[in-house]
Simulated assay, not measured.
Amino acid sequence: MTPALAHIDAWIFDLDNTLYPASCDLFGLIDQRMTAYVARITGLPRAEAFALQKRYFREHGTTLSGLIADHGVDPHHFLEDVHAIEMDVLAEDRRLIEAIARLPGRKLIFTNGDADYARRVLARVGLSDSFEAIHDIHAMAYQPKPAAAAYASMVQAFGVDPAHALFADDMTRNLAPAKALGLTTLWIDNGSEQAGDDSGDHIDYRTADLGHWLHDILETA
């Protein structure tokens, strides 16, 4: 383990576009279903529904949170609907699987999705047995990343010491609150939809390939 990260004993990972390549565009399938859902709920034409969906994402952290606030949407119904997708675009990455297995300490998932969906993704990419637990949108009481309350709930739920934890996410805006809390941060800069500043001291490490980065830090003495 590289000396700079030898103090890390909790490894916390986002799910989508972090534990699989953004080039798979799995989230693109979800995005389409979200737009259709917003259109049904609001009665808006698809283009306007898409614009509203993205505004909710920017202002509330997730489309779901905006729909809950403005339309009283049942989160379980929404998540079941938008996650009703095939996952055949995903594949196992043996280097990533082996690297995560070798990490010392605890390993957790921290996602704005729900645990059922996360388990389907993890199974498809060969990581079902790699993580201690999943902290999902239900556990966050529907206050998603990047809301500070989401990070506080995760840290409290698992007794994580931020000074000894690393958080990896593909969205830079989700790294800033983690850094403010004291976590080491890793930006998965792989071409997914970024939101937030991609420079500054809230990003400690940066990689386009999580498996490669983990392999490198594990092999560096």
Rank of each mutant, 00 (worst) to 15 (best):
Ala152Lys: 09
Ala152His: 11
Val155Arg: 13
Ile188Glu: 05
Asp197Arg: 13
Ile134Glu: 00
Glu193Phe: 14
Ala150His: 04
Asp201Trp: 06
Met154Ser: 03
Val160Lys: 09
Ala180Asn: 08
Leu181Asp: 00
His138Ala: 14
Val155Met: 13
Phe158Lys: 06
Pro144Leu: 06
Ala139Phe: 06
Pro162Glu: 03
Pro162His: 08
Gly191Ala: 08
Pro144His: 01
His138Phe: 15
Leu175Trp: 05
Ile188Thr: 04
Asp198Tyr: 04
Asn174Pro: 04
Ala141Thr: 03
Tyr151Phe: 15
Ile203Gly: 11
Thr172Asn: 11
Thr185Gln: 05
Asp170Asn: 10
His135Cys: 15
Ala139Tyr: 00
His164Ser: 09
Met171Cys: 10
Asp201Leu: 14
Gln143Arg: 15
Pro146Gly: 04
Ala148Leu: 12
Pro177Asn: 06
Leu175Ile: 02
Ala139Thr: 02
Trp187Gly: 00
His138Leu: 11
His135Pro: 07
Asp201Asn: 14
Met171Val: 11
Tyr142Lys: 01
Val155Lys: 04
Ala141Pro: 03
Ser199Gln: 15
Leu166Tyr: 08
Asp161Arg: 06
Ala180Tyr: 07
Ala150Cys: 04
Ala148Trp: 06
Ala139Trp: 05
His138Gly: 10
Thr172Pro: 12
His138Pro: 01
Leu175Glu: 00
Ala157Asp: 05
Gly196Asp: 04
Ala176Thr: 09
Gln143Leu: 15
Thr172Ser: 15
Ala152Val: 06
Phe158Gln: 10
Gly182Cys: 10
Phe167Ser: 08
Ala163Tyr: 08
Gly191Tyr: 07
Gly200Ser: 09
Thr184Asn: 08
Ile137Arg: 05
Asp136Ile: 12
Asp198Leu: 02
Ser153Gln: 10
Ala141Gly: 09
Ala149Tyr: 02
Ile137Gln: 04
Ala176Gly: 06
His138Lys: 10
Gly159Leu: 14
Asp201Pro: 14
Ser192His: 13
Gly191Thr: 01
Asp170Glu: 05
Thr184Leu: 13
Leu175Lys: 03
Asp169Gln: 01
Asp204Asn: 11
Ala157Leu: 13
Leu183Asn: 02
Ser199Cys: 14
Thr184Val: 13
His202Ala: 09
Glu193Val: 15
Asp189Cys: 12
Met171Phe: 06
Ala133Trp: 08
Pro177Glu: 04
Met154Val: 04
Ala176Leu: 15
Asn190Gln: 08
Trp187Asn: 02
Ala139Glu: 07
His135Tyr: 12
Tyr142Cys: 14
Asp201Lys: 11
Asp161Thr: 03
Phe167Trp: 00
Glu132Thr: 08
Arg173Glu: 12
Asp161Phe: 11
Pro144Asp: 01
Ala168Asp: 02
Ala141Lys: 12
Ala168Asn: 01
Tyr151Thr: 00
Ala165Leu: 14
Ala180His: 09
Trp187His: 13
Ala152Pro: 00
Asp189Asn: 14
Asp169Met: 06
Met154Asp: 00
Ile134Ala: 03
Leu181Thr: 03
His164Leu: 08
Asp204Met: 12
Asp189Leu: 10
Ala141Arg: 13
Gly159Arg: 12
Pro162Gln: 06
Ser192Asn: 03
Asp136Pro: 11
